[in-house]
């Protein structure tokens, strides 16, 4: 059994020092309960959650953004979803559906849907009317307008919403450890239960680092995916709001 000792030996009572020592201990970087595997589990839950959330939110966002139909419903629904406490939802889903992988994932999906939905909807509907009109007058069919014009032009905002969703999920996936699943949340939950604050702090730092790395990767993807024509300074009437504003709007209301 290579399980680490139940209570760690630290050289100081300072939790910061303890956290540092915990992170530096090579024992914690190997084995089935080591940081790398836990991080992989963490990413796995994140990816699963986001795939489901994207599959739900993007089609709805595209439809509502393109047609303008059901806008009010979607905006208020996103607001309601944002107000739900993820931990409460998790508990509720587990009580209703039992332990296992999917109940907590669904609770996380509820968290990821609002920013992705809002970003997709806002990105599509912010594409200038003139641009859409031009596309239509050239003889594009409605799906062609959506996928060849609205999506590429709305991409900065759409990806902004997606990044906000990713960050929230990566940070919040830790809660699944609460019901005996894996992921980096194990370090927080287990550390707390044995008052090992070095482990709690170390785990939190790893989660934060993972979130930052993911965001940097996504920012790079965004740079590559967005047409250079949209980056050049544009000063024209009816201009769409910049991605940033909508990202902030999407991030607000994040809770767990």
């Amino acid at each position: 059994m290579s399980v680490p000792a139940l209570v760690e030996e630290y050289s100081s009572d300072n939790p910061l020092v303890q956290g540092y020592e915990w992170l530096m201990n090579p024992m914690h970087w190997q084995g089935p309960e080591g940081i790398p595997l836990r991080a992989l589990e963490h990413l796995g839950y994140t990816a699963l959650t986001l795939s489901i959330a994207v599959a739900i939110a993007v089609p709805i966002g595209l439809y509502v953004g393109h047609t303008g139909r059901g806008r009010v419903v979607v905006i208020s629904l996103a607001g309601v979803l944002r107000a739900l406490p993820t931990l409460g939802m998790l508990t509720l889903f587990v009580l209703l559906a039992g332990l296992g992988l999917m109940p907590p994932i669904w609770a996380l999906v509820l968290l990821a849907v609002p920013p992705i939905l809002a970003g997709t909807y806002a990105g599509i509907s912010a594409v200038s009317k003139d641009t859409v009109d031009a596309a239509r007058s050239m003889g594009m069919t409605e799906p062609q307008i959506l996928f060849r014009v609205e999506v590429p032009n709305g991409l900065p905002v759409i990806l902004g919403g997606f990044r906000a969703g990713v960050l929230q999920v990566v940070a919040t996936v830790a809660v699944v450890a609460y019901i005996n699943l894996g992921g980096l949340g194990r370090f927080l939950i287990d550390g707390l239960s044995v008052s090992d604050y070095g482990r709690v702090l170390g785990g939190a730092v790893v989660i934060a680092a993972l979130a930052i790395c993911l965001d940097i990767v996504l920012a790079g993807i965004q740079r590559l995916a967005v047409s250079p024509g949209l980056k050049a300074p544009r000063r024209q009437r009816g201009d769409s709001p910049t991605g940033r504003e909508t990202i902030t709007a999407g991030v607000q209301g994040g809770n767990s």
Partner: peptide, 30 residues
């Protein structure tokens, strides 16, 4: 409607170019 429009050139007051495409690709759209 779509094929009717493809059979006619339309120049809009605001030029109406697609901002995400290069000039060449804009011209080649139809």
């Amino acid at each position: 409607a779509a094929s009717l429009r493809r059979s006619m050139g339309y120049v809009m007051q605001s030029a109406g170019l697609l901002p995400h495409r290069t000039v060449t690709d804009n011209v080649a759209t139809v």
